[in-house]
Lab assay of single mutants.
Amino acid sequence: MKVIFLKDVKGKGKKGEIKNVADGYARNFLFKQGLAIEATPANLKALE
């Protein structure tokens, strides 16, 4: 799953980066902790 990092995550990505991560890791950790959001077209446009 492609995500946009909202904060730096050690070993995974830095704020503003778009990367592929495992679906479960994204849903169960990154999204719940507020560290990333899904890289949807609307979210990508908002990032610009």
Score class of each variant (00 low, 15 high):
residue 16 G to A: 03
residue 25 Y to E: 08
residue 35 L to I: 07
residue 20 N to S: 14
residue 3 V to E: 00
residue 40 T to I: 05
residue 18 I to M: 06
residue 23 D to K: 14
residue 2 K to V: 12
residue 33 Q to D: 05
residue 24 G to F: 14
residue 20 N to E: 15
residue 32 K to H: 08
residue 48 E to S: 13
residue 9 V to S: 02
residue 12 K to M: 15
residue 20 N to A: 13
residue 3 V to L: 04
residue 33 Q to N: 15
residue 31 F to T: 04
residue 36 A to Y: 00
residue 35 L to T: 03
residue 3 V to I: 10
residue 33 Q to F: 15
residue 17 E to L: 03
residue 48 E to Q: 14
residue 4 I to Y: 09
residue 3 V to T: 01
residue 43 N to P: 02
residue 7 K to H: 13
residue 5 F to W: 02
residue 4 I to K: 03
residue 39 A to V: 04
residue 26 A to E: 09
residue 45 K to G: 07
residue 26 A to M: 09
residue 1 M to R: 07
residue 31 F to L: 12
residue 15 K to G: 04
residue 42 A to G: 11
residue 48 E to A: 13
residue 38 E to I: 07
residue 32 K to M: 12
residue 25 Y to I: 07
residue 17 E to N: 04
residue 18 I to H: 02
residue 37 I to Q: 06
residue 14 K to W: 09
residue 39 A to F: 09
residue 11 G to S: 07
residue 20 N to T: 15
residue 43 N to I: 08
residue 37 I to V: 13
residue 9 V to D: 02
residue 16 G to M: 06
residue 35 L to W: 12
residue 18 I to Q: 04
residue 22 A to D: 15
residue 14 K to G: 06
residue 44 L to V: 11
residue 44 L to W: 03
residue 1 M to L: 14
residue 2 K to E: 09
residue 11 G to N: 09
residue 3 V to Q: 00
residue 11 G to V: 01
residue 22 A to E: 13
residue 31 F to W: 03
residue 3 V to D: 00
residue 7 K to E: 10
residue 16 G to K: 02
residue 6 L to Q: 04
residue 20 N to Q: 14
residue 8 D to N: 11
residue 9 V to R: 02
residue 21 V to I: 10
residue 26 A to G: 05
residue 13 G to T: 03
residue 41 P to A: 13
residue 9 V to I: 09
residue 20 N to D: 14
residue 25 Y to S: 05
residue 19 K to A: 10
residue 2 K to S: 10
residue 3 V to K: 00
residue 10 K to Q: 14
residue 35 L to F: 11
residue 23 D to A: 15
residue 28 N to G: 10
residue 7 K to Q: 13
residue 47 L to G: 05
residue 19 K to W: 08
residue 24 G to L: 13
residue 36 A to N: 00
residue 28 N to A: 10
residue 23 D to R: 14
residue 16 G to I: 01
residue 23 D to N: 13
residue 46 A to P: 05
residue 8 D to Q: 05
residue 9 V to H: 03
residue 24 G to Y: 14
residue 30 L to T: 00
residue 34 G to L: 08
residue 28 N to V: 07
residue 31 F to V: 08
residue 45 K to A: 14
residue 17 E to W: 05
residue 25 Y to F: 12
residue 21 V to K: 00
residue 2 K to A: 11
residue 30 L to F: 03
residue 24 G to W: 15
residue 20 N to V: 15
residue 1 M to I: 15
residue 38 E to Q: 10
residue 16 G to Q: 02
residue 36 A to T: 01
residue 41 P to M: 11
residue 6 L to N: 01
residue 33 Q to Y: 15
residue 4 I to W: 03
residue 29 F to Q: 07
residue 8 D to I: 03
residue 11 G to P: 04
residue 28 N to D: 13
residue 33 Q to E: 11
residue 23 D to P: 15
residue 27 R to A: 07
residue 9 V to G: 01
residue 35 L to N: 03
residue 37 I to Y: 04
residue 14 K to H: 11
residue 22 A to N: 14
residue 48 E to D: 12
residue 48 E to K: 10
residue 40 T to H: 05
residue 29 F to R: 07
residue 37 I to G: 01
residue 15 K to M: 09
residue 20 N to P: 07
residue 35 L to M: 08
residue 18 I to P: 01
